[in-house]
Design a protein around this nucleic acid. Structure first.
Lengths: 200, 200
DNA sequence: GACGCTGAGACGAAATCCGTCTTAGTGTCT
DNA sequence: AGACACTAAGACGGATTTCGTCTCAGCGTC
């Protein structure tokens, strides 16, 4: 936080540790996972790990979830440049988010091996955070077309819908398919806003 | 060992425990595996497990290796009925054995996750046992064509070759391919026996 | 040389695992 | 009915592993 070069090195070490934690929990599952496993996988001493994440496994995986979440929305936002209009922006948002969820191998492995905790981090426990981060990343984009309060309400709604349709696919809607997503958004999302609110 | 019905039940329980051990070691690896994991997976109390395998994990996995080995040769022998002649018998033996090794998912998982121990059980430590069991199952079949001592020598040789070519495939020979196996056996195995020994 | 960061490992405390044993319950055979 | 074989559940003490903290030495930068 103070000098110049150490920051780069420290960040790199932290990333290595988080990557190691990700790999270890995928290989062994949360139950069989020890701090030493992560330290060994990261090529780091246990002392370093505790210095970096005081509190141990809990704090470490908390940091991992934060990083993964920010990475997710960073990648997502990269697909949302220069939208034509509000509908286009929303369609591309849900399609890209759904696609990214479907291609996330780590998430798939976690859902298979630790369904309880993973579902919790997508719904009960973790959803408020997901909505918060989604708001930070996406509300500025939606603000181009809607008043701020409406933007926040909309982003939250989309986040909930994307997750729900990802976890339990529907026979009628496929949010990973642009045309299906467009029809869905046109039918159920856009009509909930008064036309006077929408800035073209 | 004395009454009638309990034997069936006990054997069934033993099979469940061995299946559980197989599944657990595949999922968690030998290092992270506890007796309680196996007991829970098998739906059996720890006491039962120790009564069945006094000595714990070592004895249990020893029994598992024995069972797997006998199953392997039982399935193999089922493919070796009514051979035309000695060459045909040997070809079908090595082809079937190689195919079965290549399709063994549990073996593949073990080789990937625990290469050291698994290789040991196929070569250094375990090979004598493999040869012994192979001898018990296959020598009677080869005895149709060769004197007993020659049969034992031949079966051992084939076992070593099948394992070697399975672990490290050759560019020149594919013991899983009937014609390649036939050429190999015709060139390197059959000529080592004096024609007078072979009963057609 | 001071400083920041790290690896290695010692240390006691906590948690887990082991192996044995007891108890109670269940179904079978006589 | 009672003897018997078998098992689930779990208590137990001891061995082992894991945890979290701490110290110390090494190393590169200022």
């Amino acid at each position: 936080m103070s000098s110049t070069t150490p920051i780069v090195a420290a960040t790199s070490v932290e990333a290595r540790v988080l990557d190691a934690a990700k790999a270890c929990v995928e290989r062994w599952g949360m139950a069989k996972l020890t701090i030493d496993d992560i330290a060994a996988e990261a090529g780091v001493s246990r002392a370093t790990l505790y210095r970096m994440f005081p509190g141990g496994k809990d704090v470490l995986f908390e940091a991992l979830r934060v990083r993964e979440l920010e990475d997710f929305f960073t990648r997502l936002a990269a697909h949302l440049d220069h939208a034509d209009d509000l509908e286009d922006l929303l369609v591309r948002t849900v399609v890209s988010a759904t696609e990214e969820l479907r291609h996330d191998q780590h998430l798939a492995a976690m859902l298979a091996s630790e369904p309880g905790d993973t579902l919790g981090s997508l719904t009960v426990d973790g959803l408020p955070r997901i909505i918060r981060v989604a708001t930070v990343f996406l509300v500025p984009l939606v603000d181009e077309y809607l008043p701020r309060r409406e933007s926040a309400r909309l982003v939250e709604l989309l986040a909930r819908l994307v997750i729900s349709y990802f976890l339990a696919p529907s026979d009628h809607v496929d949010l990973g398919d642009p045309s299906s997503a467009r029809a869905f958004i046109g039918a159920f999302i856009l009509p909930t806003f008064q036309p006077s609110l929408i800035r073209p």
